[in-house]
Design a protein around this nucleic acid. Structure first.
Lengths: 340, 340
DNA sequence: CTGAAAGCGCTTACAG
DNA sequence: CTGAAAGCGCTTACAG
């Protein structure tokens, strides 16, 4: 069978406990015997048995990743794979494994999570979304299971480590950017305010409008279930928007189609700026100006702080803000300032 | 601490070995004592400790998922997340966990895979891609580690279980579909022939052209690194194509832009049909006719056959073909048959 | 049909 | 600085 700690001990003429200590690089062991033991480990291609380690020290070296309730559309959003890629990168570095947890609804999700913790399959969880009154988060909190959330948590805010963008600021930055290009009438499409990210972006949008004293019409704000007629109506207002902010690159595509269908030319008749900077943004016509929120880093940092917390429970709660930046492409254009 | 087999044994007045056997639903135990033991398990919310089980029976209940060498663009292709979703679904059902393995190149991938198998972290692997002379696959084969591949394996074909579409047939079907709409000059764009999937689709394309006696110009076949000029040149031929097949929905987007830029209107001047049927396809303008290859099922079936193989090594090698179907949308149009 | 005991491969007080 | 021994929570011959 595979080579074990015993084989190494025998060949290096030490006790198994000594081998175990060199695996952990314990300072109690002399450099001389460490070297000797390591030579044997190398020679035999030894790798500690993961199940045995887990059983003995009650650590699984494994992270659970909670996806939002499964829905094909959501899954196909590259956001998730990209953040998982970030998590995966750090996990591989730290020798952690990950388990993706999905479920059709909160109940299923919760029961799977419950089973995993009882069975001791993971050391902690990363929650890839955030929403109000999440029973899964309640569970983590009550059971004192380490977890971090990507996004702004809606419960136990100050006590939960999370990594997020400053979406409020991003919301403002986008308005400022458009303002500086001369835009004064700015609409917002795809405001899925059930999700915290979007709520924050919209808050930032509205705050910036107020600060800049821009006029605003409630019809300027559309959710995710708008119809093409809603878009058309927007451009039949006396004061149609000259620019639109889109909640997510994914939504920009159908929106662009809607605009084309009612004969609005981009970017001449309407500038478009979006969020997430997916590769998609670069492929659109015209290429889409988009806010890069560094999804990979969101995942990477979430995994990093979770692992720190797991390895040292006294680790402080952290709120990590990943910087965003606007990536300029051809979908926004300067217009003449118009006092109307 | 967590409740263990001992607690159950005590409360049910049996030996721990008996509890263990009811966990496994062994036929050796009477229904009466099974019922009694189960009642206690339920009452205490018992869940078998996963590390202990793994250690004792040398099974990890965990699958490794090998991604192709990491490259942002590839990762953002929804194909991977969608197949992982399929794998995840089955894994959750079977109580398996998964570990995603990524690496910058084959060497890094191989060393991570090697470490994981030595450390006994997974029972087997799913390879999400297929390419010639893959050292990772060589490793699995030589070490007799269970694995399945999504796609058509290039090595050890008859001995490796794989799940795939019939991409050759799909290649032919697409041509036939266009032929029946009256198209006679059909180009193919985005033929990434380094990847087996695409090679097969191109083979099918060429076979169908030959069968239907359609004229063909070598300039009709473009790889992935075509320029907009190449596209423009295509339409300046004496016999420009009236329809184009695109290797992947993801590529359809920039291609569509290129076509718009040189003033080709879709679908009037050129029909477009693509592969994968991502949600993207439905969002494009015009919505894209695309071959649905049921990515979810590819993942699900791959996980299924891998787990079967793990649980019973005598399980036969299987080649599973997931059916495809053309999803018609507005990007293909009927044209008058033209004898030219 | 059920139990007592050894073993899976580690870790970690405890003793020296 | 190192070793002997108990223990982590299961499984599985072996015996009855």
């Amino acid at each position: 069978m595979a080579v074990t700690i015993k084989d190494i001990a025998k060949r290096a003429n030490v006790a198994t406990s000594t081998v175990s200590r060199v695996i952990q690089d314990s300072p109690k062991i002399s450099e001389a015997t460490k070297a000797r033991v390591r030579k044997e480990m190398k020679a035999l291609g030894y790798e500690p048995n993961y199940s045995a380690q887990s059983l003995a020290n009650r650590m699984t070296q494994s992270l659970g990743i909670i996806m939002p309730e499964a829905d094909v559309t959501i899954f196909q959003n590259p956001f998730f794979l990209e953040s998982i890629r970030g998590i995966s990168e750090l996990s591989n570095e730290k020798n952690f494994t990950m388990a993706i947890v999905t479920g059709r609804d909160d109940t299923e999700l919760l029961s799977r999570v419950r089973m995993m913790t009882r069975a001791n399959r993971v050391d902690g969880f990363i929650v890839l979304y955030s929403k109000p009154e999440d029973p899964v988060v309640d569970f983590f909190h009550n059971e004192k299971i380490p977890y971090t959330v990507i996004g702004k948590p809606q419960q136990y805010v100050s006590e939960t480590t999370h990594v997020d963008n400053d979406n409020f600021q991003a919301g403002k930055d986008v308005v400022t950017y458009l303002y500086e290009l001369g835009h004064r009438r700015i609409a917002y499409v795809g405001a899925d305010t059930a999700r915290t990210v979007h709520k924050e972006r919209v808050r930032g949008y509205q705050a910036a409008l107020a600060e800049l004293n821009l006029e605003w019409d409630s019809r300027y704000l559309l959710g995710t279930s708008y119809t093409n007629e809603d878009i058309a109506a927007l451009f039949q207002l006396d004061t149609p928007p000259t620019a639109m902010i889109v909640g997510d690159d994914i939504i920009a595509l159908p929106l662009q189609r809607a605009l084309q269908q009612i004969g609005i030319r981009l970017p001449e008749q309407c500038s478009l700026i979006s969020y997430n900077n997916l590769t998609l943004a670069d492929m659109m016509n015209p290429p889409l100006t988009s806010v890069d929120i560094d999804i990979f880093k969101l995942g990477y940092q979430a995994a990093k702080s979770l692992i720190e917390k797991i390895q040292d429970p006294k680790e402080m709660t952290k709120h990590i803000i990943v910087p965003h930046r606007i990536v300029e492409r051809a979908s926004c254009t300067r217009i003449n300032e118009d006092p109307s």
